[in-house]
């Protein structure tokens, strides 16, 4: 287990405890809260209608947690972790994913010491809201334009990841606008471009592979997902 849990020397996009000044911690909590609240209402509606979706949502969340603790070898030689929320957004929709990601981020800070409590709001916004919403939007757009599911999944995860990094860089440079916001933003983006862009491509490809495997082995699960997202059934049928 140590192999999965160990995090020393890995670079990940979580903003660490104590990194942001308190004003920005508060700000991102206030920004993230309404979206998560909306997600909670959505989840409550789903689970009230069919209670069997409750354990399924829980396993999905646990899956995101385990996926994000897998190590992916990156081009630069270091190891990095996938965010895992792109797949979640495609499978379960962005609102449910935002709630699951919130719980996952809380567990990550309390069980693995990734991220933190005071920076939780900022992390929720970048990894649980901006990323998944972008991934879901891109997936819908690509699907509508008639391209294949694989391309849709790849670009959803790739752009979702990129947006997560851009939002994180924005959050960091808003907190430390020295000498100006733009200059600081450029500095953070340069770091992220080196470490995270290859990772986004890798995670995109990996997620396509995962999606493709699930389609091949157990398409019925994706059909069952109509419990959470009714439209997924059509996607699964197209591929069979």
């Amino acid at each position: 287990m140590r192999h999965f849990i160990k995090s020393k020397g890995d670079f990940n996009v979580h903003i660490m405890e104590g990194f942001l000044p308190w004003q920005w911690c508060l700000f991102w909590y206030i920004v993230a809260l309404p979206v998560v609240a909306y997600g909670v209402i959505q989840i409550k509606k789903i689970t009230d209608k069919n209670p069997e979706s409750k354990p399924l949502l829980a396993v999905s969340g646990a899956f995101i947690f385990v996926l994000s603790s897998l190590k992916i070898p990156s081009v630069t030689g270091s190891c990095s972790h996938p965010t895992g929320t792109g797949l979640g957004a495609v499978l379960f929709g962005p609102a449910a994913t935002s709630v699951l990601a919130t719980i996952v981020l809380l567990f990550q800070s309390l069980l693995l010491a990734h991220g933190g409590i005071t920076t939780l709001g900022a992390n929720i916004f970048s990894m649980g809201i901006a990323g998944p919403f972008a991934a879901w939007g891109i997936y819908k757009v690509v699907k509508k334009s008639g391209l294949s599911t694989s391309i849709g999944v790849f670009f959803a995860v790739f752009i979702g990841d990129l947006l997560t990094y851009i939002v994180t860089a924005t959050q960091l440079s808003l907190a430390f606008p020295i000498p100006t916001f733009t200059e600081s933003f450029v500095k953070f983006m340069v770091i992220f471009a080196y470490t995270q862009v290859p990772l986004a491509i890798i995670e995109g490809l990996l997620t396509v592979f995962i999606f493709w495997n699930i389609m091949k082995l157990r398409p019925d699960i994706l059909e069952d997902l109509k419990v959470i997202v009714p439209k997924i059934k059509e996607t699964a049928k197209e591929l069979i």
Partner: peptide, 8 residues
């Protein structure tokens, strides 16, 4: 990851 998803 895909087998994990199915098993989970």
């Amino acid at each position: 990851a895909s087998n994990l998803f199915i098993r989970t």
